[in-house]
Computed example of a mutant assay.
Amino acid sequence: MTTAAEALRDATAQLEGEWARSDAELLMAHALGVSRSDLLLRHMRDPVPGGFEALLDRRLAHEPIAYILGSAEFYGRRFTVTPDVLIPRGDSETVVAAALEACPAPRRVLDCGTGSGALLLTILAERPKASGVGIDRAPAALAVARENAAALGLGERADLHEADWAQAHWANDLGTFDLVIANPPYVEDDAPLDPSVRDFEPAGALFAGPNGLDQYRILVPQLSSLLETGGVAVLEIGANQAESVAAIARESGFAVQVRKDLANRDRALILT
């Protein structure tokens, strides 16, 4: 009988890399139907469950661990994720922190390109008096966001519906907001990405032209009409895009501040 501990050693050697052991433990815990901590404390001598090898094969093929497990952690909360949405990343927590700093008590929040809903729902969870609207052009992504809203008890405060800011009249019935947030597609079309990203995450939520700026050029000039007087917009950006996106924002009449992520890379712009 092969034990979980023995299988974990073999899986770690196959996966290699900085996160190999962590990924192997998460897959084993998932296969056993227990938490990672329970695995380490109580189940290391258990026989390997039948589904573990199939999960390991998926990870060896570069499928992201979050898609295999069906969820990801963001700002201390668990969000359902599927291949229809980008995986929420720690870098994007900078957007939430910057938004709550710049607009500490929002009443109405708009999330452009909501995906899993992680940004919008986190802000609503952190600010119980706020309500919000999340738009996305992908119905499958909105289904994931609605599932997350329901799981977090935020369904009544989060209005999630289909819209595309590249189409005329998309915002006609939305009204105005104290806070607008967005994590638009911003990856260059030919950017060298890890296979776990390029081959698995939705291309429509990643790529935005030869320099990654196409969606900012469309969205940013529309933000002023969506903001209340004194309102704030916060945008996620690529690590090398602060100057370019700030120039687009200034052309649209905004003052701009930059916020860095935990790795000290430019990650969010605050527009006022």
Results as ranks from 00 to 15, higher is better:
residue 25 E to V: 09
residue 43 H to K: 07
residue 24 A to D: 00
residue 10 D to T: 08
residue 49 P to M: 05
residue 30 H to Q: 08
residue 71 S to T: 09
residue 59 R to Y: 07
residue 74 F to D: 02
residue 24 A to E: 00
residue 78 R to Y: 00
residue 46 D to T: 01
residue 14 Q to L: 15
residue 9 R to Y: 03
residue 74 F to G: 04
residue 15 L to H: 13
residue 68 I to D: 04
residue 21 R to C: 08
residue 31 A to P: 01
residue 59 R to M: 09
residue 7 A to T: 01
residue 64 P to G: 10
residue 54 A to L: 03
residue 38 D to I: 00
residue 35 S to G: 15
residue 21 R to P: 07
residue 67 Y to W: 04
residue 22 S to D: 09
residue 2 T to A: 13
residue 67 Y to C: 06
residue 69 L to C: 13
residue 29 A to R: 04
residue 14 Q to D: 05
residue 49 P to R: 07
residue 23 D to H: 12
residue 13 A to W: 11
residue 42 R to S: 14
residue 3 T to H: 07
residue 25 E to L: 10
residue 71 S to F: 07
residue 73 E to D: 13
residue 38 D to E: 13
residue 78 R to F: 00
residue 7 A to C: 09
residue 17 G to H: 14
residue 64 P to S: 09
residue 49 P to G: 10
residue 72 A to T: 01
residue 19 W to D: 11
residue 74 F to Y: 02
residue 52 F to G: 04
residue 68 I to C: 08
residue 61 A to R: 14
residue 32 L to T: 04
residue 50 G to K: 12
residue 45 R to L: 10
residue 63 E to P: 09
residue 65 I to T: 15
residue 50 G to L: 13
residue 78 R to W: 03
residue 58 R to K: 11
residue 74 F to L: 04
residue 27 L to P: 06
residue 21 R to K: 14
residue 63 E to K: 11
residue 52 F to Q: 03
residue 30 H to L: 06
residue 69 L to N: 09
residue 26 L to F: 15
residue 28 M to Y: 07
residue 35 S to L: 04
residue 78 R to Q: 13
residue 73 E to N: 12
residue 48 V to F: 06
residue 30 H to R: 10
residue 75 Y to C: 06
residue 47 P to W: 02
residue 74 F to A: 06
residue 77 R to A: 08
residue 47 P to I: 00
residue 37 S to C: 10
residue 32 L to N: 08
residue 45 R to F: 01
residue 70 G to V: 02
residue 57 D to A: 14
residue 51 G to K: 05
residue 36 R to Q: 08
residue 19 W to Y: 13
residue 8 L to G: 09
residue 73 E to H: 11
residue 18 E to Q: 15
residue 42 R to A: 14
